[in-house]
Design a protein around this nucleic acid. Structure first.
Lengths: 189, 189
DNA sequence: ATTATTTATGAACAAACTGTTGATTTTATA
DNA sequence: TATAAAATCAACAGTTTGTTCATAAATAAT
């Protein structure tokens, strides 16, 4: 086919641009990073950048989307045992994924990272939780608030874990998050 | 004294710059806001801006610091009854403050806002919690993680509350947060 | 009320980044 | 090898930045 081959060159260009960008993101905020800078670091012509991306923020968005897709593919490969601990297994797999891709994740999931993106990652798990919650008859009136609490809390834990150099096992972390969530929830059943 | 009077003009300059900046922050991300733009909106010479602030980020930092100071002053005026529900009262007062200053808070406490600043606001309360936690002999090993969870979760709830137009009473919100935190904690005592 | 001091203004500056264009060269594949 | 796609290069006007300095305005002190 045509497109597959055309993409070879494009793929290289996009790859080096992304790498250069992630490298820069480690040392400074996205707002301080110029397109000129990204291109110099990647040794790619600036006009070529504009052929693929609108600006830094567009580049970031594309990187994030690819990560979400990748996580979903990763989780799809994993078949869950139907023994009631699906949430735990799913959560552990997410921690596994983050660990395997800690370089990118440390940047994208950091505090300065895009919150909506982080929420999207977490929602992969929380979807599962929500159904469990409704099964448990959680007070629907405040369910939204509890959801905000749990999601943001979980992101906070992941961020700390990454900051601390992933000092605990993925299983330990998955258990920690689910324990907190379930317990906190139980006050409103 | 000298400085008190000199500040009259400076105070006005800083005030209009801040107002202009907050107004702009409502419609776009800080990274898209130019100093030129802030000055035009405030009708202040650009050279004057540089006399007071390094850039937009410096301006934001100063606004945040003033808010933290203001919250602390606000809380200092409030004398707490020593009946064991200090945390609840303190938390409610914070919600009260946010409500009274919802215009600025909606911007500064939003998702796009500075996370370190938000943590600082919350830490005013959490300090109190921490002492209660250690009294309860929470597993110190994971206390840090629980703290991350609780703080980020609480911020998430506040953000949702502001987004929803402060649809619930401050007391209700304070109770919600403390209930979640205490309950989640109880799994690790 | 007048003088002295502080602060704000306006204009000008080089430097950097932006976003776009069109002509040209490189690269991949058919 | 021919052809189509992609990357490069140079040039462009337009904007923002950060700084400087002379001048004007506002404020404080005498």
């Amino acid at each position: 086919m045509k497109n597959d081959k055309v993409n070879r060159k494009i793929k290289y260009t996009k790859m080096v641009l992304k790498e250069s960008f992630i490298r820069l993101l480690k040392s400074k905020d996205i707002s301080r990073i110029t397109i000129t800078e990204i291109c110099e670091e990647a040794d790619i012509n600036r006009a070529t950048f504009y052929a693929h991306y609108k600006d830094q923020y567009d580049l970031l968005k594309q990187i994030e989307q690819e990560l979400v897709d990748d996580i979903n593919r990763y989780l799809a490969n994993y078949s869950f045992h139907e023994n009631g601990s699906e949430s735990l297994q799913l959560m552990e797999q997410i921690f596994e994924y983050i660990k395997e891709n800690s370089e990118v994740c440390s940047v994208l999931l950091s505090e300065s990272g895009d919150k909506n993106f982080q929420r999207e990652v977490l929602s992969i798990v929380q979807h599962q939780c929500i159904t469990e919650w409704t099964r448990k008859n959680v007070n629907k009136d405040i369910a939204e608030y509890l959801y905000s609490y749990a999601t943001n809390g979980s992101i906070g834990i992941i961020q700390r874990w990454l900051r601390e150099g992933m000092d605990r096992s993925t299983m330990e972390m998955a258990e920690l998050i689910l324990k907190m969530t379930d317990q906190g929830l139980s006050a409103f059943v």
